[in-house]
Simulated assay, not measured.
Amino acid sequence: MIQLERLWLERELQQVLIRYAQLCDERDWGLLDQVFSTDASAQYGLRTLPDPAAILDMLRNHLGGCGPTQHLLANLVVDVDTPEDDSAEGDALLVSSRTAVRASHRGAGEKAAQTYECMGYYHDRWTHTPAGWRIAHRKMVVGFEFGSRSVLAPPTGLAAP
């Protein structure tokens, strides 16, 4: 992979990560298919999510009834493994990344004065689809957190699983 191709790949992945932050902070659930592949899975802490529907349910249950949030993603490190002939494109590339995340949450309603923050890393494995690069598997590793997780809540009328 030549340097220009690598820079373009990193830019494409960064745009998907930006969409993820937008999905979370604007509660724009329709962006899910611009972030995750159709067969994506994830692990957020001890919670294993086998498919995009489970990922969406988790996001809705944590953020849907929460107050304002801000997901800051930085320090993207991309690893690319290519076959020996070095001519691979798309699906033939084995692409993974690590991104630092700082997610700030404020409560809503009675919990509006409470906050919850976590900092850690997203470890993503990527796949190339006809629509572009998408996350095939995400593992979130939280380094530390402070505040009250009780601000994470489903939308009113929706019970948490």
Rank of each mutant, 00 (worst) to 15 (best):
E89A: 15
T115Q: 05
V101P: 04
E26Q: 12
D51K: 06
G67P: 01
T48Q: 14
L31R: 09
E110F: 05
G65C: 06
D25E: 05
E89K: 14
T99W: 01
L76H: 02
G107L: 07
A103T: 12
N61I: 05
V80E: 00
P83M: 03
P68R: 01
Q43T: 10
D51R: 12
H71C: 06
C24F: 11
D25G: 00
D79H: 09
A112L: 08
L17I: 13
R60Y: 06
L46P: 11
P68C: 04
T82Q: 08
W126R: 03
D91W: 09
D124T: 03
H105P: 00
L23W: 14
D79Y: 07
A42M: 14
H105E: 02
G109Y: 02
C24S: 13
P130Y: 01
V101Y: 00
R19D: 05
G64N: 03
S37L: 06
D25S: 06
C118P: 12
L46M: 11
G30N: 05
A92S: 12
R47L: 13
S87L: 13
P52K: 02
T127Y: 12
Q34C: 15
V77I: 07
W126Q: 08
A40H: 07
A42K: 10
Q114S: 10
L31H: 13
S96K: 10
S97R: 10
D86P: 05
G45V: 09
A54K: 02
A92E: 10
D51T: 12
T129N: 06
I55N: 04
T38E: 15
H71W: 00
Y20S: 03
D39I: 11
R98L: 07
H62T: 14
I18M: 15
G64W: 00
T69G: 02
A108W: 07
G65E: 05
D91P: 01
N75Y: 00
A53N: 13
E117D: 12
L72N: 04
E84C: 09
T38H: 11
D81L: 09
R47H: 02
A112N: 07
C66G: 08
L31P: 13
G109A: 11
L63E: 02
G65V: 03
G65D: 10
L31N: 12
L32D: 07
T129W: 01
G120F: 02
C24G: 11
A131F: 10
T115K: 10
S41L: 11
Q114C: 14
S41A: 15
D124L: 07
Y44F: 15
L31M: 06
D25V: 04
G67F: 04
Q22K: 09
P83S: 07
A108D: 05
L72H: 02
A88C: 08
Y20D: 03
H128V: 06
A92W: 01
M58A: 09
L56M: 06
L32H: 02
V95E: 01
